[in-house]
């Protein structure tokens, strides 16, 4: 973090997808969902979605058109799923308040900690006893109050396509958007209780199938991203 310079091209975990095409793992503590508002409201905070092409040369090239489409589909489908539970999903694309922005940075750090310590074998933190023991702290109440929403959803998706199809997924490297090999899809969603800052649900999706570029397949991906959402 502060003392170590990141090696941009380093990899963490190589996940070979063999028989299965999609993997979803989620973690949650005993969750007690409750609402302080009459209208249930969840913030979708600065969803981080990027789609691109993996060229023959092995470079990842961002595609604005695919990304824009994916963002639209994600927003649409996520809203629809929430509406099914009588929940209003409010998307915030850009937080202006510096402290709120720091909270999203902190969430990124927390997300990374979860990816490493929850989902990477051999990297568990031995001093953590609960399954899901991360928080952003009660500073999140400023968002709770400003947007009058009790929960926030964070979403991170990196997705690349080749003509050759998908082979490998690199979870760690994917977090940096670097050298995502083959056609792969990595996504995670997390749910934060804005009254405590606790990350109460974390869902990691890795897939060699699915397509976020067109409407119907995209809906399926979003459903997987939100599968198990405890709201």
């Amino acid at each position: 973090m502060m003392l170590v310079r990141p090696r941009i091209a380093a990899l963490v975990v190589l996940v070979a997808l063999s028989a299965c095409t999609t993997t979803r793992v989620d973690v949650a503590e005993d969750i007690n969902i409750n609402w302080t508002t009459e209208q249930k409201r969840v913030l979708l905070v600065e969803p981080d979605v990027q789609l691109g092409e993996l060229t023959a040369g092995g470079t990842f090239e961002p595609r604005a058109d695919w990304t824009q489409s994916a963002q639209r589909y994600i927003t649409r489908e996520a809203s629809r799923i929430m509406r099914g539970g009588a929940i209003d999903l409010v998307q915030i694309d850009k937080l202006e308040d510096p402290r709120e922005f720091q909270l999203t940075k902190l969430h990124g750090a927390v997300g990374q900690a979860a990816l490493v310590h929850l989902f990477t074998p051999g990297m568990a933190l031995p001093n953590k006893t609960k399954a899901m023991d991360w928080t952003l702290g009660p500073g999140t109440n400023i968002m709770r109050d400003r947007y009058d929403a009790d929960y926030a959803l964070f979403m991170y998706v990196r997705d690349s396509y080749t003509t050759a199809g998908r082979a490998f997924l690199m979870v760690g490297a994917a977090m940096f958007g670097v050298g995502v090999q083959g056609g792969t899809q990595v996504g995670y969603t997390s749910l934060v209780d804005l009254r405590t800052g606790d990350v109460i649900w974390f869902n990691l999706l890795t897939s060699s199938g699915g397509d976020l570029r067109t409407a119907e397949p995209a809906r399926e991906v979003v459903q997987k991203l939100l599968e198990g959402l405890p709201l």
Binding site: M1, V4, A10, D48, A64, D93, G108, A109
Partner: peptide, 19 residues
């Protein structure tokens, strides 16, 4: 640790929606 090194850096991507 060489492997962990990149993890130390907090990278949070930002949405591509640009207004």
């Amino acid at each position: 640790c060489a492997v962990l090194a990149p993890l130390f850096s907090i990278i949070l991507g930002n949405p591509a929606v640009a207004q």
